[in-house]
């Protein structure tokens, strides 16, 4: 048994072009470590230097946004399906201000 992970176009350079890969792990963090061992660099695109999930990457377990399930600590089970989508965002505002607004929104959503 394994966990299926759907890889977005922009990250397929890490998976040899594969749209779907398999991995294992008890938590999202564990799964990303496992994937990174075979797809070197993938984790760095999803996790910040501080060890949190990147704000502008959406990760879903089955039909749930992982932010509501505990982020990298979210528990996974064999047979789960993970979908990774880069957030679609932008706008006229300068980058720093946009990131600050987005950061506040993320904090509000996760209750942290």
């Amino acid at each position: 048994m394994a966990i299926e992970v759907r890889i977005p176009t922009i990250l397929r350079s890490y998976t040899g072009g594969a749209k779907v890969v398999e991995g294992s792990g008890d938590t999202l963090g564990g799964l990303l470590d496992d994937l990174d061992a075979r797809h070197n660099g993938l984790k760095g695109r999803l996790v910040t230097a501080e060890g949190g999930l990147h704000r502008f990457v959406n990760v879903y377990v089955n039909d749930e946004d992982i932010r509501f399930l505990g982020g990298l600590d979210a528990k996974l089970s064999d047979g789960d399906s993970i979908t990774i989508l880069p957030a679609v965002a932008g706008g006229a505002l300068g980058f720093v201000a946009a990131a600050a607004i987005a950061g506040q929104r993320a904090a509000a959503r996760t209750g942290r």
């Binding site: 879903y60 706008g91 505002l93 987005a102």
Partner: peptide, 15 residues
């Protein structure tokens, strides 16, 4: 984001 200067897809609608 409902903003005059920023947009972001809702994560669940996006999925």
């Amino acid at each position: 984001a409902r903003s005059m200067t920023f947009y972001e897809f809702d994560s669940m609608e996006h999925l």
